[in-house]
């Protein structure tokens, strides 16, 4: 014989179990939520550096006597050295002066011809002994369309760099003021789309 008190106690326990189960059911349905984490990854290559290794140096020039400096002189051809990720494609652009400035602001014309530049990607090349790359190029147009491909950072150890040689011509007038003349040659280098 079950007493009224015991019956009430059993009902309370059953209600408690039911409540727990109902809450469990609800949580199962509501918690159908799945999370996973993937990754975005990238490896950034070595940054570019450009160094003006050697100035384009014209020999002593006389008024009225044009002078040309080629790209094959180890001691006077202009040299830029580009370091970066070996083998990576680059874009090179020269900003070339039209004259050099001398004493008292006197100007002397400077020009750059269609073969006054070379891009040497070898480790051992010099202006006098061109290695690999693009020789006798127009410094005003070093685009991939003209070169046939984007130039690259040299990948021959231990240098792993590219050197650009540049020459030019100067045209002193017959009344050119005597003295030293200078001008900036600016080379801009950036990575190309690989």
């Amino acid at each position: 014989m079950i007493s009224s008190t015991n019956r009430q106690s059993a009902m309370k326990k059953a209600a408690l179990v039911l409540t727990v189960l109902l809450l469990g059911t609800a949580s199962c349905v509501l918690a159908a939520n799945y999370v996973v984490t993937g990754q975005a990854t990238a490896t950034v290559a070595t940054a570019l550096t450009v160094t003006a290794t050697q100035e384009l140096d014209f020999p002593l020039t006389f008024p009225g006597q044009p002078s040309t400096q080629g790209i094959t002189h180890d001691d006077s051809t202009g040299i830029f050295t580009i370091d970066g990720e070996p083998g990576a494609k680059i874009i090179t652009t020269f900003y070339l002066p039209e004259y050099m400035t001398g004493p008292g602001g006197d100007r002397m014309t400077i020009t750059f011809g269609a073969t006054d530049c070379a891009i040497d990607t070898s480790n051992a090349g010099t202006p006098a002994a061109f290695g690999d790359g693009w020789n006798n190029q127009n410094p005003q147009d070093l685009t991939a369309a003209t070169l046939g491909a984007d130039p690259v950072i040299g990948s021959e150890a231990p240098g792993n760099n590219t050197r650009i040689y540049i020459g030019g011509s100067i045209y002193p007038s017959i009344v050119q003021a005597a003295g030293a003349y200078t001008a900036d040659i600016v080379l801009v280098v950036a990575y190309a789309a690989q």
């Binding site: 349905v29 799945y34 999370v35 975005a40 990238a42 490896t43 290559a45 940054a47 990576a88 990575y191």
Partner: peptide, 22 residues
């Protein structure tokens, strides 16, 4: 429905080599 549901990573988003400024 939830009991059989899963989500997993098949591939990460991989850019590979990236060059400064590009």
């Amino acid at each position: 429905p939830g009991d059989t549901q899963t989500v997993s990573v098949v591939n990460n988003l991989e850019f590979g080599d990236v060059f400064p400024g590009v």
